Simulated assay, not measured.
Amino acid sequence: MEYKQWYMEYKIHKNRPGLLGDIASMLGMLEVNILTINGVEGKTRGMLLETSDDEKIMLMGEMLKKVDNITVTALRSPRLVDKLAVRHGRYIDRDSDDRKTFRFTRDELGLLVDFLGELFKREGNQVIGLRGMPRVGKTESIIAGSVCAMKRWTFVSSTLLRQTVRSQLAEDEMNPHNVFIIDGIVSTIRSNEKHYNLLKHVMSMPSTKVIEHPDIFVRESEYTYDDFDIIIELRNIPSEEILYDSFTTSYSDDL
C-alpha cells in the first residue's frame, strides 16, 4: 500500500468558528492524513495531505465544493512551491511572463535558503542563475542552501572574500554531487583560457551550477538563457533595480 502526498489549498470566505475542525473531521473520516497545515497569505489556507487512495481525495474535493464558507483553489500533487508555502506561510513571487524566474527580497532570505536547499537536493544537471546587486546576500544564500541540502560547495569563481578565478580544481572538488558556484562577471570579464576551459568542463558536468550575474554571463559567453533551468532575483527591497553598469567596472579596473 503506497501512500501519496497531495496539496490542498482553499480560500476562506467566512472564517466561522469550527470551520477548520469540520474540514479536519471530514479528512479524518476519509482516513486522509494531514501532514502540515498553515495559513498562506491572508484568507488562504494550505494543507499537505497523505493517503493511499486517490479516490478519497477526489471525493473530498467534490464534497468541499458544497461548503459555502470556502472555495478550493488547488488540489494536486505538491510542487516545491506548495511545500514551501505551507512551511513558510507565503508564496514565492514568480514572474507571470517568465515562469522560471522567482523573486525574493532580503527579508525573505530564510525562504530563499529553503528554496535553494530543496533545489540542491535534486540529482543531475541543473543551472540556476542568481541576479542581485552587491552585498545583497547572493553567495551567502547559496552556501546556506548547500548546507541545508548537505552538499559540499565548490567555488569556480567568486568575489566573496576577494576576486577568485580558478584554473583547476582538486579531485574532490570535481565531485558532480557538489554545488558549483560561478560568478558570471568574474568568469567572463576576468577569464583566461585555463579558467574558461575549466568553466566549460564544469558546465558540461551532470551537477548543480549556480551562476551569479547570469545576464553578464550570457552576454559575454557562448551560453544562452535556454541553458538556465531557474533564474532567481534577490533584492534589498521589491522596487530595487538590478543595474550592472554601477558595479561591473570595478571587476576590470586592474586589467
Rank of each mutant, 00 (worst) to 15 (best):
Q5N: 15
Q5A: 14
I12N: 09
N15A: 08
R16I: 04
P17L: 01
D22W: 03
S25H: 12
L30K: 14
V32P: 08
I37G: 15
G42S: 06
R45Q: 14
G46S: 05
M47E: 11
L49N: 12
L49R: 07
S52A: 04
E55T: 08
M58S: 11
L59S: 06
M60P: 01
G61M: 07
G61R: 10
K66V: 00
D68C: 00
D68Q: 09
V72K: 06
T73A: 08
L75T: 11
S77D: 13
L80A: 07
G89F: 03
D95H: 09
S96W: 05
R106Y: 14
R106K: 11
G117A: 02
F120Y: 15
K121Q: 08
R122Y: 08
N125F: 11
G129D: 10
L130Q: 01
R131V: 09
G132F: 01
M133C: 04
V136Y: 04
T139H: 03
G145A: 00
S146P: 13
C148K: 10
A149E: 15
W153H: 12
T154G: 04
F155G: 01
S158M: 05
L161T: 15
L161D: 09
R166M: 13
S167D: 11
Q168D: 12
Q168G: 13
A170H: 14
H177K: 10
G184F: 14
I185L: 06
S187L: 12
R190E: 00
S191A: 10
E193Y: 06
K194S: 11
H195P: 12
K200E: 10
H201V: 04
H201L: 11
M203K: 01
S204M: 10
S204P: 03
M205I: 01
M205L: 08
H213S: 13
H213P: 02
P214Y: 06
P214R: 11
V218N: 01
R219Y: 07
E220N: 12
F228L: 09
I230F: 08
I232M: 04
E233I: 08
L234W: 05
S239R: 06
F247D: 00
T248P: 00
T249R: 14
T249P: 14
Y251R: 07
Y251I: 13
S252L: 13
S252Q: 05
